[in-house]
Amino acid sequence: MLQVCSVTKYYQGQAVFSKLDLTVGPGRFHVLLGPSGCGKSTLFDGLTGVFPLDGGRLLWKGEPLADLRLHAAYMQQKDLLLPWFSLLDNALLPAKTSGRDMKAAKDQACRLFERLGLKGYESHGAHQVSGGMRQRCALVRTLMFDRDLVLLDEPLSALDAITRQSLQSLLLMLQAEFKKTILMITHDIEEALLLADEIHLMSARPMSVSRHYVLSSPKPRKFNDPALLAVKAQVLDQLEGGLSREPH
C-alpha cells in the first residue's frame, strides 16, 4: 500500500534519518518502535508533508506521491479536541472540512459513537468527559477521515494504565472491524507486542530500521504468550546492544 523509499531528513546539518526504507502492507498493523527522540515523529511529519523531506520518495499503491496529506488519517498523542465544539462536532470535523454530505456524515458519526460507547455524550463538551472518552472521540474523528491508512503518533502514552488497555482493544478494532492499515509510533515495547503484525525496530539517530519482526500470534494477545516473550527478549537485547554501542 505504502512504500517509503530511501527517505532522508536533515536537521541543522545532521541526518535525522538517512535512506530509510519501509513497506506498509494493506490491512496490517505496523509499529515503529524506538527510543524517545530517535526521530519517529519527525518521520511522520515528513510523511504527512508538515515539512519537506530532503531525499527519497513515497509510493502510494505503486504511484509516486508528494506526501500522505490526503491519504492518511492522523491521531496524535493529544486528543486535539476543540473545546468550542461538542464531541459530535469534533468527530464531524473531517466531514466539515472536506465538504461531505453532512447528514450522511452525522449518521456515520452517530453509529461510531454507539459502537465506541459514546452514545448519549454527543452534545457534551470535551472538558466534560474523561480522558478515555476524549481519546475514543478522537478515534471516531480519525475514522471519519474515511482513509485507508491511519497514522498513530503515540496515541496512548498520555493515558493511565486502565484506560490505555481499553483503548488498545479499540485500536485492534480499528484494524479488524474497520479494515484500516495502521502505522503506529511507540516507545512502549509491550504495547507494540500486543498490537503489531509487524514491528520495525528503529535505531538511534540517524534513525534506520535496525530489525524487522513479523508477529503472527492471534489477537487479542496475552503477555505470557511464549512467542511474544521471545520477541520481547530479542527486542530488549537489540535495544540494550544499541544503547551500549552509543558513544558516551
Partner: peptide, 8 residues
C-alpha cells in the same frame, strides 16, 4: 497539522 491533514 490536524487541519492540514484533513485537507481543510
Amino acid at each position: 497539522v490536524l487541519f492540514r491533514l484533513m485537507g481543510a
